[in-house]
Amino acid sequence: MASNTERNVVVELRDLKKYFPVKSQTLIGGMGDTVKANDGVSFKIYEGETFGLVGESGCGKTTLGRTIIRLEKPTGGQILFDGHDITRMSNRNLRPLRTDMQIIFQDPYGSLDPKQTVGQIIGEGLLAHKMFKKGPELEEYILDIMDKCGLDDYMIHRYPHQFSGGQRQRIGIARSLALDPKFVVCDEAVSALDVSIQSQILNLLKRLKDEENLTYLFISHDLSVVKHISDRIGVMYLGEMVELGGAEALYNDPLHPYTKALLSAVPTTDVQRKGEKIILKGDIPSNVHPPSGCRFHTRCPLATEKCRQEVPIWEEAKPGRFVACHHYEQTKEMG
């Protein structure tokens, strides 16, 4: 982890905030109620790594992924992409950078335009950036990309409805790779596929990462998938990051009680495994009016009066391990 300081930073987030208005703004001009999808998230993603992002539904993972590549306008904070501050950049200035950041979506059905052929889908970005003109060269390049993603040549003139979910996801991957990006957000890229296809796609993503020198932000709620593919993992809860660390370290020795509870819930076939499931009480609280102090205190088995009042600071508990919890030393004895 010490080598992190020497590696290039691809993405850096500083106190990133993204709020969505629930009601229209008040007449006087103040903001009405907002959903705080991301509320002060800071971390760095280094070149060549796979950064896993986990958390339960509605914790703001997807919003974070979309805000990083500026599909959403951030409410506050700062996004540095490859040294450029893209937080407030206009779409016009952002356009040249778009080739470097791409996204792979969850739903292999909704993410492909049903009216376009596979070739048109993959070639669209290339034409938009005038990297190619229509013609045999473009087709050659598309076939090349398709081959890398495990798609056969004859598929180029077919329409998305003629493919299975796994093949469609390969098309989506081919589309984002066509622009030769540096950084790819994989937003639940395998969650909609069945398990045997999942592993195929994961292996494809791994292979492409090595071949094309990519950096991934891998968003998933599936902990075993994230562990399989990630170098470092960030855990999100209710719009905030609660823990960050190397994949192995985080799995073997979770510091935040929420991480520990999440990990204990991963289904396993290992009868020998020690420890029981930690059942969290209650539902995930509203992110319109999040709980005071530590946001997890309403469901945390270790919660004390301090947690109710003081917001825990984001600190480096061990080298390379960050956590936001008042009582992380006690997490080990939990459960």
Binding site: L94, Q102, I103, R175
Partner: peptide, 14 residues
């Protein structure tokens, strides 16, 4: 709001 429109925007299509 469909993802293929988002994908086009992410690719920088006007």
């Amino acid at each position: 709001e469909q993802e293929f429109i988002l994908a086009a925007r992410a690719m920088g299509v006007k």
